[in-house]
């Protein structure tokens, strides 16, 4: 018997990253998210994951990602538990592997993991039998954020083939940037990254990524612009010329007419972009957040093999 790999399955059973994902796989998740958004509004699929226990283990702070995974799991009928890291045995020095094995022993079927160290999700998959969803690992990957961004962009500007997406700011510390590069190039877009030299260091060696060193070159003709937060907790320092890279409505005129602004949040208003731009009509920041729930519904359902 042969089992065809269709967009209705996800190859590894885990979502570590979008590197190497086939275009059909990514598009399949985006399409499923659209369906999930309608289903959620109509309260359909409310028991789709009733056999699932989803544990949220967030070893780094989060508002959007954690809450949207919780809402996504609940919307599909899963039991959702949240490991309160500060109040757990982690605070007593329990190792990551021991903590995750404890969650597994209590029946967790899907682990949504955020951790400060790159590769923590792969470790979780090696050490336990749970299905793993990466909710952000250090500077490495944040695939569900990239999927939300891709869905938001697709709905705002149409198919991404050949479109230029400019990512501006602290790229080097950003897992969002890395996952967006994989996701957007996987969907046929061209990705340009720009920032002060220390914020784009090393990205010139990344195939299919164009590195630009002035804001003008980064923005010129871009079909969409994504601003990134300075990751001060990962050792980023604000560069002296940061004002030269701050986005505002005037500077956005360098981009293609009507090009939207995105930001994965939380924003440092006045640092990477102005408050005025963040709330301007062309801002997709609110929609990125709203799309986070159906995207995470799609991911949970697809990994469980239920949709």
């Amino acid at each position: 018997m042969t089992v065809a790999v269709t967009p209705r399955t996800w190859p590894s059973g885990h979502l570590f990253d979008l590197a190497g994902a086939a275009r059909g796989q990514i598009e399949g998740l985006l399409d499923l998210a659209v369906e999930m958004r309608e289903a959620r509004a109509a309260r359909r699929h409310a028991s789709m994951l009733e056999a699932e226990i989803v544990a949220l283990a967030f070893f780094e702070a989060s508002t959007r990602t954690r809450i949207s995974f919780e809402l996504a799991g609940r919307a599909l009928g899963a039991t959702v538990v949240d490991l309160d890291v500060a109040g757990s045995s982690v605070a007593k020095g329990e190792s990551l592997v021991d903590t995750l094995r404890t969650l597994e022993r209590m029946g967790t079927t899907t682990l949504v993991l955020r951790h400060q160290e790159p590769g923590a999700p792969q470790l979780a998959a090696r050490a336990t039998g749970m299905r793993i969803v990466n909710a952000g690992d250090g500077a490495h990957a944040h695939p569900t954020q990239a999927l939300s961004d891709a869905l938001t962009l697709r709905e705002a500007i149409g198919p991404l083939d050949g479109r230029v997406v400019a990512i501006v700011g602290d790229v080097v510390h950003s897992r969002v940037a890395r996952s967006n590069i994989h996701c957007l190039t996987g969907l046929g877009a061209r990705v340009r990254v720009g920032g002060p030299p220390e914020w784009v260091a090393g990205f010139d060696g990344w195939p299919a990524v164009e590195v630009t060193t002035t804001l003008e070159a980064t923005l010129r003709g871009a079909d969409a612009v994504m601003a990134l937060r300075a990751q001060l907790e990962r050792g980023a320092e604000l560069p002296e010329d940061r004002l030269a890279w701050r986005l505002d409505s005037d500077r956005m005129r360098l981009a293609a007419p009507g090009a939207p602004i995105l930001h994965p949040g939380p924003t440092n208003e006045g640092v990477e972009l102005t408050a005025e731009l963040a709330s301007a009509p062309g801002s997709l920041i609110g929609r990125q957040v709203a799309n986070g729930v159906p995207i995470r519904m799609a991911v949970l359902a697809r990994l469980a093999g239920m949709a």
């Binding site: 590197a19 790159p118 590769g119 690992d137 250090g138 500077a139 490495h140 990957a141 080097v172 897992r175 890395r178 260091a201 090393g202 990205f203 060696g205 990344w206």
Partner: peptide, 13 residues
């Protein structure tokens, strides 16, 4: 080792 793979993986080089 510092280099393209470290950059892609987000690990300090």
């Amino acid at each position: 080792r510092a280099g393209p793979t470290a950059v892609r993986l987000g690990l300090p080089g």
